[in-house]
């Protein structure tokens, strides 16, 4: 190569690096076509096409969906792109990551008129709108030799030795929720002792929910652990996605020691279309479409639940709750202490 080219290439590389350091952020909002509203969400998002079409039919606005990994990744990405958001509305941030987003002042305040139908226990201030919730609960194989545990403390009893599989809270969202449930239950002073007890009782830690449920849980596949950290909706899915029609769920939800994940929507870029979309997401049509698509419960208490959600599972009357600020302030420390106690 001749010298001029080498200089040219060096110049270009140099320019890339200088640009990286100096590029100023000038918000321009997501690029979108006329009459389109963009929704960024986690990759478990699902809704019937007809539902989104109904929104377009009534408002004349198309919904463009972008996906962005899990709830944690979705939150971090939204914060990183705060100055120039990729979408108008975000849905899928939950209470374990909410505080991080609120601290970053991610959302434009909006109080939807439809909020009145949402129980106040799900509300989290003007910046976000609760859309759905799901409980992380122990699932119990009804065919197991041991009786169904009533609460978390039961799992320390000798008969539950080697029966439980949980997920690593550092890498799994239900794993983190379960860790938070134990902290809510046993308090700052007692939760590590509880986990020491679980370790002594041969708890198994899986890296993610898929491995825990499909490889270790007795109901999910080839496993040998009859108790797993999963969701309150899992027994419903186990019926709906069974190979043979079932009259009864093979597993049940242990309603003691659950942790409730509330999923919120928030407006990243202010517009009437964005507000209308949030209103629509709280409306009955969307809300009633939520359970069978995403296996979570609608936030709107006026929405009718599918019969399977009534018949095949229970939802905890008083799931564990921790303040979002408390979670944000302590999450890393809790995970580190958990890792040091359980894995080392």
């Amino acid at each position: 190569m001749d010298r001029i080219t080498i200089r040219l290439i060096c110049l270009l590389f140099g320019f890339a690096l200088v640009a990286a350091a100096c590029a100023s952020a000038e918000p321009s909002g997501p690029v979108r076509g006329e009459g389109t509203v963009t929704l960024v969400t986690h990759d478990s998002f699902a809704i019937s096409e007809s539902t989104l079409e109904a929104f377009t039919a009534s408002t004349g606005t198309q919904v463009e969906v972008l996906t962005a990994g899990d709830a944690g990744l979705l939150t971090n990405q939204a914060i990183l792109t705060r100055d120039n958001p990729t979408a108008d509305v975000l849905y899928g941030i939950d209470n374990t990551f909410l505080s991080r987003a609120l601290d970053a002042d991610l959302f434009v305040d909006y109080e939807s008129p439809a909020l009145s139908a949402v129980p106040t226990s799900l509300h989290a201030g003007p910046a976000v709108t609760p859309i759905s919730f799901g409980d992380v609960c122990l699932n119990y194989d009804k065919a197991a030799a041991v009786p169904e545990p009533a609460d978390l403390a039961d799992l320390l009893k000798p008969e539950y030795r080697g029966t439980l599989v949980v997920e690593n809270p550092a890498t799994s969202s239900p794993g983190l929720a379960f860790l938070l449930a134990t902290i809510a239950e046993f308090g700052e002073a007692g939760w590590l002792d509880y986990w020491r007890g679980l370790v002594e009782n041969d708890v198994k830690v899986a890296p993610d929910w898929e491995t825990a449920y499909f490889s270790d849980f007795t109901v999910g596949g080839g496993g040998n652990r009859p108790i797993v950290v999963s969701y309150a909706s899992s027994p419903v899915a186990a019926v709906l996605f069974s190979e043979v029609p079932l009259d009864e769920a093979p597993s049940s939800t242990v309603t003691g020691g659950c942790f409730r994940q509330v999923e919120y929507a928030g407006m990243l870029v202010e517009s009437d279309e964005a507000r209308r979309l949030i209103d629509f997401m709280l409306g009955r049509e969307f809300q009633e479409d939520v359970p069978l698509n995403m296996f979570v419960w609608p936030a709107n208490s006026e929405a009718t639940l599918p019969p399977e959600f009534v018949e095949f599972t229970d939802i905890p009357a008083s799931p564990a709750a921790l303040d979002a600020k408390l979670i944000e302030a302590n999450r890393d420390r809790w995970i580190d202490e958990w890792t040091a106690t359980v894995l080392r």
Partner: peptide, 17 residues
Amino acid sequence: PIAIERFLSRPGEVNFG
């Protein structure tokens, strides 16, 4: 691959299958 992960993110033998 994304479709596979979606199926694997939900309980039920049919999803796994």
